[in-house]
Every structure is written in structure tokens, then in C-alpha cells.
């Protein structure tokens, strides 16, 4: 039922700065609902963000929050987790923040399997600075820096994280709100590095340039391209063109970094801190 908004939001900071129909509020609500349904202690949960529209989210969330520099949310979150592994550490990032300037940090967090939950608010564009293309902008779509259409190949962020060794990877969209909430819940429960690609909509800077005139048009565009992961592998390359799988894409538990590090600390102490 209705979320206890006063518990999870800094209600004095609302209304938020996001544009009418922006998907980031929907994804933020899904995170809060997932936290509520998972029963995470708000006093033991830290939320960290970088720079961009997405990264404004923690400012509205009533937790210990950190708004850091562009692309560097994961390094700050890594420090928090290493210093106090008992904390639940959630990173909120955007497609520019996570895949462009912070791409290196993303792949190394996946490689290390540090126990962070990273939720990427992926709206395929740099919204805050008025619609430059990002590494996630689909080929052929228009951006302020791609007036003749995006000519580069985009990343598939889930495949990138998988290639870097990511052990829990899921994807959903702002259309599939219940599914998105469930994906985030599973990510929060996962002990190692968990990554959720949360497709969101930017009606102002993506939609208007790409004949998706209303927020509803954008949500339907997400709906029409999403395919359940269970069906994805049976599809031909032609059928997959322009579409993406949603659901849990990777779930291969392996030992979380702070656990391994704890063992190293025990060993170091036993050897008298030699070195």
C-alpha cells in the first residue's frame, strides 16, 4: 500500500527539480519501495550519487546521503563499504555518470565484487546540461550534439558489467514499476556487487527531439522495446534489433570483497603486521 513518504523522503525539499514526467522520480520511488519491502534499516543505509539529474535523488531521500563529484560515486561508496562493511551502501548514478566519466570505476567495482548496489537511472542522454548524447544514446536518435542522429555504437551497460565480472545484474524500466521494484529488492538482498540498469525517460531533452512528445509516449517506447529475459535467448538477431532484455540477467554469487579483505586483515594481524 501507500509508502510512508515522510519516513523515506526529506519532504521539506519537495517538490523536486525534475521536469514534469521525468522518469527519475518513478525510479526513486521504486528504490524507496524496495527498501521498505526489504526492511532495510534507514539508519544503516547510505546512499551515494555523482553528478547529473539522477544524482539529485539522494538529496530528497531521508538517509545518510552523499552527493559527490562527476562519475566518482562508486569510489566514495567503496570507501564507505571498506570502512564499515556492515552498512548497506546504495549508489544512484546516471548513464553519463556511470558509463562515461565513471566507466572505469564501474568496471572495477564489478571486478572486485564489492557489496554495493548500483542503480543506474539510464535515460540515454545528458539531461542536466540540455541533452548531449551519452554512451547509452541509441544509434540514430537525436541529441543536441547529434543533430543528424547518433552515429556511434552505444554500450549495453549490463553486458559491460557482465564482462567486467559482475555477479548480479538486472534490468527494468520506469514503465514496469512493480518489476523494477522487485529487481531492486533482489539487488539489495544480494551480498556482492549488484547492478540494476533502470531505464528512465527524459521527455524534455530526449523525447522532444525523438518524436516522443509526451511522458506517456516515452514510457510506451520503453514498454515496446522490453523483452522478458526468459524469451530473449530464443530470439533471432533480427528480432532483438532495437530491443533489450529485462529481468535478472546474471546471478552467479561469489565471495564479496570486504569478506575477502576481512580474512586478509586476520592473516596480517596473526603475522604481527609484518611488511
Amino acid at each position: 500500500m501507500a509508502l510512508p513518504l515522510e519516513k523515506y523522503l526529506r519532504v521539506g525539499k519537495l517538490p523536486h527539480i525534475w521536469c514534469p514526467g521525468c522518469g527519475h522520480g518513478i525510479v526513486t520511488q521504486a528504490i524507496i519501495r524496495a527498501i521498505d519491502e526489504t526492511g532495510l534499516d534507514t539508519e544503516e543505509t547510505v546512499i551515494v550519487s555523482g553528478i547529473g539529474c539522477s544524482s539529485r535523488a539522494p538529496g530528497y531521500m531521508n538517509f545518510d546521503t552523499l552527493h559527490t563529484t562527476h562519475g566518482r560515486a562508486i569510489p566514495f561508496a567503496t570507501g564507505i563499504k571498506m570502512a564499515n562493511p556492515e552498512l548497506n551502501v546504495i549508489v544512484i548514478t546516471g548513464d553519463g555518470d556511470a558509463a562515461a566519466i565513471g566507466g572505469n570505476h564501474l568496471i572495477h567495482a564489478a571486478r572486485r565484487n564489492i557489496g554495493l548496489t548500483v542503480v543506474c537511472f539510464n535515460n540515454n542522454i545528458y539531461g542536466m546540461t540540455s541533452g548531449q548524447y551519452s554512451p547509452l544514446t541509441p544509434r540514430g536518435s537525436y541529441a543536441s550534439t547529434a543533430p543528424y542522429g547518433m552515429f556511434e555504437r552505444p554500450f549495453d551497460l549490463c553486458e559491460l558489467v557482465k564482462g567486467a565480472g559482475g555477479s548480479f545484474i538486472a534490468r527494468s524500466t520506469a514503465y514496469h514499476t512493480r518489476h523494477l521494484t522487485n529487481m531492486i529488492k533482489e539487488a539489495l538482498k544480494y551480498e556482492g556487487f549488484s547492478f540494476v540498469d533502470a531505464l528512465s525517460q527524459c521527455p524534455t531533452y530526449y523525447g522532444r527531439r525523438n518524436r516522443l512528445r509526451t511522458p506517456l509516449d516515452m514510457l510506451n517506447w520503453l514498454r515496446d522495446r522490453a523483452v522478458p529475459a526468459s524469451s530473449w535467448d530464443k530470439m533471432t538477431p533480427e528480432e532483438k534489433d532495437g530491443k533489450f532484455p529485462i529481468g535478472i540477467l546474471v546471478n552467479q554469487p561469489s565471495t564479496e570483497l570486504t569478506k575477502v579483505y576481512g580474512e586478509v586483515m586476520v592473516k596480517a594481524a596473526a603475522e604481527g603486521g609484518r611488511g
Binding site: 500500500m1 523522503l9 519537495l14 517538490p15 520511488q29 521504486a30 514499476t177 521494484t181
Partner: peptide
Amino acid sequence: IGCLLCEMHCPDFAITVKR
């Protein structure tokens, strides 16, 4: 019918459905 589709799709936390 209390499906919450309005509440969960509201980007502004502005509509709530309570029993």
C-alpha cells in the same frame, strides 16, 4: 481497485492510495 499503478508511476510522489 487499489492497483497502485497511479502511485507507482507518479514521478512527483504526489498521488497516494491508501486502504
